[in-house]
Amino acid sequence: MIAILDYGGGNVGSVRKAIEYLGAEVTVASRPEEIRAAAKLILPGQGHFGAMMKALGERGLVDPIREGVAQGRPMLGICLGLQALYESSEEAPGAHGLGLLEGRVRRFEGVFKVPHIGWSPIEVKEPRGILRGIPNGSFVYFCHSYYAPLTPETSALTDYGQRLAAAAEFGSVAAVQFHPEKSGDTGLQILRNFIE
């Protein structure tokens, strides 16, 4: 059973719809025991970094997430769910991220429109894991005002004024900055890779 974490924000509905469309069993989970019982976990995201970390903390969800990662259970972070893997974010200077990836999430600066909304091509470093079968240059749908820096775990990147992490993968953890549930056939393939 795949559990989509509901912490009171995030686009749980559209992620659920996509997983159901792909034929997998899915549940929406908001309690620690539900997270612990899940075979695979999806951490969706939309909204505010500080609010998300606060909600996860208050609901006692941080420890179950960490345990899952330590046990090697597959987890997929989407959008803010990728940013939450980093140490911190300029969006909420005092808040601690999960710290599974090194670095700080930053706000876009410069001449470009913020948020970065729309379809951008991704540079796939290696077409494996959740990016299995995804050609270099595939278009995916982004919607974000803050971006995550490149790390050794970055598996795909894109360019919006600066190079940013579009996807990361390490151990049993995968994460994407874009919205696979809104990225047409490419997005569905990425979700299928995670499910299978």
Partner: peptide, 8 residues
């Protein structure tokens, strides 16, 4: 350089 596409 940005690669954002125009949407239809």
């Amino acid at each position: 350089m940005t690669h954002l596409t125009k949407r239809i």
